[in-house]
């Protein structure tokens, strides 16, 4: 799993590449944490995210909660069809406004 992080107009764009599982979600958490407090509006680009497990989902929720707390917004985009069912089953589609 690698993250491509770039600053955009009023926030941060994080592109997740590869697998986001129990092991790699810890890296995700620490890398996001290293970005500091105010990320602004966060866009999670999942175009190249092949897999996500509950650990990954937890990382997404943690990030979402943090962003929301600072009054900003987080959106998850470009979820590939193979991964989409995980979001749907867990109700995360609604949570991250995937539609």
């Amino acid at each position: 799993m690698t993250l491509d992080i770039e600053k955009i107009d009023n926030g941060t764009r994080i592109a997740v590449k590869g697998r986001l599982d129990t092991v790699t979600s810890q890296e995700f958490d620490s890398q996001v944490k290293n970005l500091g407090g105010d990320l602004g509006d966060v866009v999670l680009d999942c175009a190249e995210m092949e897999y996500i497990s509950s650990a990954g989902l937890r990382s997404f929720i943690t990030l979402l909660k943090g962003v929301k707390a600072s009054g900003k917004d987080l959106s998850v985009v470009n979820v590939i069809p193979a991964v989409r069912p995980v979001f749907d089953m867990t109700g995360f589609s609604k949570l991250f406004n995937l539609d």
Binding site: S53, S54, V86, M89, T90, G91, F92, K94, L95
Partner: peptide, 24 residues
């Protein structure tokens, strides 16, 4: 138990794994 309809603030982080196992 995981209630998928809960809003973000009320969603718990735990239990998702077993929830997914059951669903899949």
């Amino acid at each position: 138990d995981v209630d998928t309809d809960l809003p973000l603030e009320e969603r718990k982080v735990g239990g998702l794994g077993i929830f997914l196992i059951r669903r899949l």
